[in-house]
Amino acid sequence: MFSDISLNILDIVQNSVSARASLIEITVNISNAEDTLTVVIKDNGCGMTDSELMKVVDPFYTTGNKKSVGLGVPFFKMAAQLSGGRFEIDSEKGKGTEVKAIFVLSSIDRMPLGNMTETIMSVVKANRNTDIVYSYTVDSKGFVFDTRQIRKIFGDIPCDTHEVNDFIQSFLNENTAELNSGANY
């Protein structure tokens, strides 16, 4: 088990990377009115057949050939269910996969969200040729981070630099803090 949701998200995103996705969309949506914290990870990778999809929520199902256990998806499902929430996974072979976990926000059994900036920065830095979209919303106010927008600004100019990464980090940190307005999720 992970200690926070952001590490769980990083693990689910690794599945999308392994599935050779060229676009990975990560959404975190917090609603105090509905008392939910919803995480969606959507990719356009290789997807799964219906029978693969049925097995994936079973602990230990894996197609990784180096070992015999696959716990990433079951952990995520369990974490959502422990808080009284629910979990959905949908996939189409050749099209992509969508994983959705809905946590009960106020449940004491809900893991904290953790450091999403670190998770997004890791994914962006380690997957330079993959488009990453991250949107964070608190009670219908939010921001969107989109590497396609950055690529459009930079064109041929390399954007994997200190200055750009520093900017992305403060973009994520400052906007998240503004939306949280003092609350700690």
């Binding site: 990083l10 690794q14 696959g70 990433g72 890791s122 380690a126 990464n165």
Partner: peptide, 26 residues
Amino acid sequence: VVGMATCGIAAGARPVLKAFSDGVQS
């Protein structure tokens, strides 16, 4: 190449990846 499987992340791969990418860049 940083191993980012479930067990890698649980063992602390995220700060290791950060240290490598920040270090290489700085």
